[in-house]
Nucleic acid binder design. Structure first.
Lengths: 340, 340
DNA sequence: TCCTCGTCTGCAAACGCTTCCAGAATCCTA
DNA sequence: TAGGATTCTGGAAGCGTTTGCAGACGAGGA
């Protein structure tokens, strides 16, 4: 494995010049630069990132902390982040932080601090003020997807508003009997996504003068089988069946649609269903939904941290950034049929 | 940010002793070790990984090259790899290598070589002999998921055998008119997964004395909408409709089932469907399938590379390792109905 | 012509660790 | 009691870069 010294002697210059030629910092004559590049290429030389970061103090790594990988929302974020980082010459260190408190501490106090990353992107991670202080003390840029988070730039859609928008769409169609299938409030994800979406739903109902009935909210797992299970329950009981269901995520909504189909309940004639996300499967099921773009959220977070790294003085938005979430109308929602 | 020197003077020892105490290498008295640890903790000291790897030559990073993230198979692999690495104190550097040749070269020639990782795990990546040579020349352990790959330990299920098993299951039930919905041979993934599964299908047919008809293989995208689209085509034409369909992946199979449902064709009474993967949704759809466990594949690959790193002399299996893939029977397959 | 300024290059000092080496202290065994 | 083995510690070299500083050179302005 050849070092900078070898390149230097092959090119007939000093180590310093090699370093300058290859990194593009400082003065180097065009002719010298060519010679150095040629020498480096012919030796297959690549700088040692450890040596380099030892002296510069930068690693060219960005740490991403994420609770789940194998789910559309999170996978899309990773894709977006990866793409943006690669483009800018940074590498991605992935930390899959599951619920376990022990793991969390380990990552926070050990891995991240360990001078391994230049910046951190925390996905759906409710960082405590103390942890925030630790992180900020490191002087490393941080950005969060989710939020808001005190002291850290964050971005996300407005969950309350999105849920309200979805519910209002149903109300506008004339539905009055609308159920909400959401996440389990007790098994909360960080940032209370579940309660926020529930809140938006309630607000919309209230706005329309419809009293909120405790029974009209049902919790389940945030995936297709979860939606299916609950769908079977709700729709299986004719007395309980609403004219519309607002599911807190497209996967849940799709589960509900599958349940409806199985019960012979036609969507949207007998039941309207709306979700949130605009999941890739939404189109196949004709699912009306509220679109969000997690991949762009990832890119945006990358942009924030890298800008901070590379443009001294630049600072990201101090407050939480709210992303647009728009209604995508498809064929799973319609006006309720007049009651028989 | 405190360095080893600070810890040393606080504990009243030399840097050398601090290093030994904290890393657990070499002799240190119990009493000294305690004092050093206490000092380190009180200063919030963490070793600089760049400095450390500069002298030791190890980074404690493992690079993972993967073509897709947001798909069950690949996401599961990442989860498995991440879990196994974290457990052993390594960090995961993620490289999402999409089709683009340029990106590929960049990652290979630049990122990986850049003394940033101790080992590489290549997922479904057909590494050329030249690239293999480059990688091996780096002296870094490599493992591949997929394969076989000359000179690199790899693991995967036997795609031909799995496809044969699936098809034979249908044959055993009495089906003779079996179509195969697979990936596009021209838009091949690496390692020719598509053609291998097609081959297993053909072998099974031949074994049963059934001539292979070109029209009985249809290519589509490897996802639910892809399966759905093709399903609609095939099943929509009564003259073309087979009694059974072997889909090369569960997602495709589920798409086919959805198409069948929509056309009022009941599964398994009028149509048997089998897939490969045992995708989380398989159970919901009662899908009979061939199970594989990508997460375990990831863990296994990690085990190989880390063992090589930590147990000098240990070598992974020289040849391709074939993983078991077993039939999981559910309710999407049955004997064909006697023809009217 | 002289001086200044911008361009180019090399020397050498860090960067923060790990580890080789040697010396001191303690322990065991003959 | 002597001698060797074992345990513990510190000094210092070195890992492979980047970068501040200073010197050399040529060009342009006064």
């Amino acid at each position: 494995m050849s070092g900078i010294e070898d390149v230097a002697s092959l090119a007939g210059v000093s180590k310093a010049t090699v370093s300058r030629a290859l990194s593009g910092r400082g003065y180097v004559s065009a002719e010298t630069r060519m010679r150095v590049s040629a020498a480096a290429a012919s030796l297959g030389y690549v700088v040692s990132s450890s040596a380099s970061s030892l002296v510069t103090g930068r690693t060219s790594n960005v740490g991403v902390i994420i609770p789940v990988i194998n789910q559309w929302f999170f996978g899309s974020i990773i894709e977006g982040v990866e793409r943006a980082l690669l483009e800018r010459g940074y590498d991605l260190m992935l930390y899959n932080l599951t619920k376990s408190h022990e793991e969390r501490t380990r990552v926070f106090e050990y891995f991240l601090v360990r001078k391994r990353v230049d910046a951190v992107i925390a996905v759906t991670l409710e960082i405590t003020p103390e942890e925030t202080k630790t992180l900020l003390a490191l002087g490393k840029p941080i950005a969060g997807i989710g939020g808001p988070l005190e002291g850290i730039p964050t971005l996300s859609i407005d969950d309350v508003a999105a849920a309200r928008l979805a519910t209002e769409h149903l109300l506008l169609l004339g539905h009055r009997d609308i159920m909400h299938v959401g996440g389990d409030i007790d098994e909360q994800m960080d940032f209370h996504v579940h309660s926020k979406r529930l809140k938006g739903y309630m607000e919309a109902l209230t706005g329309a003068g419809i009293p909120y009935d405790r029974d009209s909210y049902v919790a389940t797992r945030f995936d297709i089988p979860g939606g299916y299970r609950v769908g079977k329950q709700i729709l299986g009981d004719p007395r309980r069946r609403p004219t519309a269901i607002f599911a807190a995520a497209d996967e849940v909504a799709i589960g509900v649609i599958l349940a409806a189909r199985e019960l012979g309940i036609s969507v949207p004639e007998e039941l309207s269903v709306i979700g949130i996300d605009d999941h890739p499967l939404a189109e196949l099921f004709g699912l009306t939904t509220i679109e969000q773009r997690p991949d762009l959220q990832g890119e945006q977070a990358v942009d924030w941290v890298i800008r901070q790294l590379e443009q001294p003085g630049w600072t990201p938005p101090a407050r939480h950034t709210v992303l647009p979430a728009r209604l995508v109308m498809r064929s799973s929602t319609a006006s309720p049929r007049p009651r028989a």
